[in-house]
Computed example of a mutant assay.
Amino acid sequence: MEAGVVVAVFAGLAGVCGAFAALVGILGLREIRRVRRFGVVAGALVKRPPGDASGEPWPPRPLLQFATEDDRVMEIVSPVPSTRRRPLRDGDTVLVSYDPADPRTVVVHRRERVGLEYGFIVVGSALLLACLALLAVAIS
């Protein structure tokens, strides 16, 4: 197999992976902004998951319980983990924004983790640039 073909295959793979990673980041940011802008704000109670006997001071992904505008009680797994710096302890209350059409779509205020979404965009863009560089090498 010719070396140019191998480089072109790697370029194609890098391009597809880069486009996918960038798209994931862009869609994640869009979803966060949409829920923050048009969502309904509610106070959510942080609860320990049932059967959690890990003994940790805070579980990695606690449950969030909140009431919707139409008085339904929702209990979902937190979309963000509890960390040492910003723990989500059992019994704490946090502000959330939820999508009224689908209350399982939640953004926890001041814990949106947009850095992760920007990271996907940066890595995806770098892979797309690597794809273009590899294609330039394969053509020449």
Rank of each mutant, 00 (worst) to 15 (best):
E2F: 08
A3R: 13
A3T: 12
V6Y: 13
V7R: 08
A8S: 15
A8K: 14
A8Y: 13
F10A: 14
A11Q: 09
G12L: 07
G12C: 10
G12R: 08
A14S: 14
A14G: 08
V16I: 15
A19L: 15
A19R: 09
F20D: 12
A21W: 03
A22S: 08
L23P: 01
V24S: 00
G25R: 03
L27Y: 04
G28F: 01
G28I: 00
G28P: 00
L29S: 05
L29M: 11
E31W: 05
V35H: 01
R36F: 10
R37F: 14
F38E: 15
F38I: 11
G39H: 07
V40C: 05
V40D: 07
V41L: 15
G43R: 12
A44I: 01
A44D: 02
L45I: 10
V46H: 01
K47V: 10
K47R: 15
R48H: 05
R48T: 13
R48M: 08
P50M: 02
P50L: 04
D52T: 03
D52S: 05
D52K: 02
D52Y: 03
A53S: 07
A53V: 06
S54R: 10
G55D: 04
G55W: 03
E56L: 12
E56Q: 11
E56F: 10
W58P: 00
W58Y: 14
P60F: 06
L63S: 07
L63Y: 10
Q65H: 06
F66T: 04
F66Q: 05
E69S: 12
D70V: 14
D70E: 15
D71N: 13
R72W: 06
R72M: 06
R72E: 10
M74H: 10
V80M: 09
P81T: 09
P81G: 11
S82M: 04
S82K: 02
R84W: 14
R84I: 12
R86Q: 06
R86V: 04
R86F: 06
P87N: 07
G91V: 09
T93G: 00
V94S: 02
V94Y: 02
L95Y: 09
L95R: 12
V96N: 04
V96H: 03
Y98R: 05
D99I: 02
D99L: 04
D99N: 12
A101C: 05
P103E: 08
T105I: 05
T105M: 01
R110L: 04
R113S: 13
V114G: 11
E117R: 08
Y118I: 12
Y118V: 13
G119S: 13
I121F: 00
V123T: 15
G124E: 09
G124H: 10
S125G: 13
S125I: 00
A126P: 03
A126T: 10
A126W: 02
A126Q: 06
L128D: 04
L129K: 00
L129E: 00
A130F: 02
A130D: 04
C131V: 00
C131Y: 01
L132D: 01
L132I: 10
A133S: 11
L135P: 06
L135S: 12
A136V: 14
A136D: 12
A136K: 14
A138C: 14
I139K: 15
I139Y: 15
S140E: 14
S140A: 14
